[in-house]
Design a protein around this nucleic acid. Structure first.
Lengths: 136, 136
DNA sequence: TTACATGCAAATACTTTGCATATAA
DNA sequence: TTATATGCAAAGTATTTGCATGTAA
């Protein structure tokens, strides 16, 4: 883990924070507060509200990014992660990462048309995966 | 309002359902359960859980579509509405509709690459609107 | 030493559910 | 008449907050 993430973000380096970042880094996939809590409590004594508070702090400080998915839950990743989206099977909840993203161009057009400075976007696809389709 | 929406959806035509659809139709913008409840209770006696139950029923029957936005709330629209997305100002929460959508092609490519049958997608842009930018 | 982090319990926001009653077909 | 819709209160799920205590710098 970058030794100076905390210094850069101007927050204290605590055992719980180091663990949460380590877990997010190890899993290499967006995780919910609950996901992280379940993993973390196997290793240290930690409270769910500590997880929530830290995820909020780290998001505000620009270390993590938060995305609310169509299941209503917040998912967190390192900001530095490759920009990608999701394709979710509505039948078995399998998730595939979608790395292609054709929105850069549209985003520029939108900025010109609307005068907005666009900072981010969220995109999610839903469908039925091959396994579930064949089971029908 | 289409006289046979309810017949087609195979659900009873009740006063509250007719009102909820009418309100959604009149506003011509995605609304939350709370939005609809506030509008509806000015006109008839209605319970918030009736609103939620009907929005769920109408969504399951394919009359409405539901999208969870990055504020964590569910927004409903007629399925028949023009396919469009959102550009939200993170500073003043102003919302602009984005009608262009370059995802059709990517969606086809994804279907071929992944074997998924893609049924829908959700897309949201966030940025800072011209007014808020000039206030800085 | 001191400001910030944490644990715990309680509160909040949005949504769902069980059950008795009301109503559309 | 009968299955479905509704109201009401209670519960569920994800998240936040107040306050006392603990800990990094």
């Amino acid at each position: 883990m970058e030794p100076n993430i905390f210094k850069t973000a101007d927050i204290k380096s605590t055992q719980k924070r180091r663990l949460l970042l380590l877990l997010l880094q190890k899993q290499q996939r967006p995780m919910t507060a609950e996901d992280l809590y379940e993993k973390a409590k196997l290793l240290v004594s930690i409270n769910l509200s500590t997880v929530y508070r830290n995820l909020n702090t780290l998001t505000e400080k620009g270390v993590l990014s938060r995305t609310i998915r169509q299941n209503g839950k917040a998912y967190y990743t390192f900001i530095s992660h490759v920009h990608c989206h999701r394709l979710i099977c509505t039948s078995c909840n399998d998730i595939i990462s979608v790395e292609s993203c054709p929105l850069g161009e549209l985003q520029e057009t939108l900025e010109q048309e609307t005068g907005y400075q666009i900072l981010e976007h969220s995109l999610e696809f839903k469908g039925i995966c091959p396994e579930c389709r064949s089971k029908k």
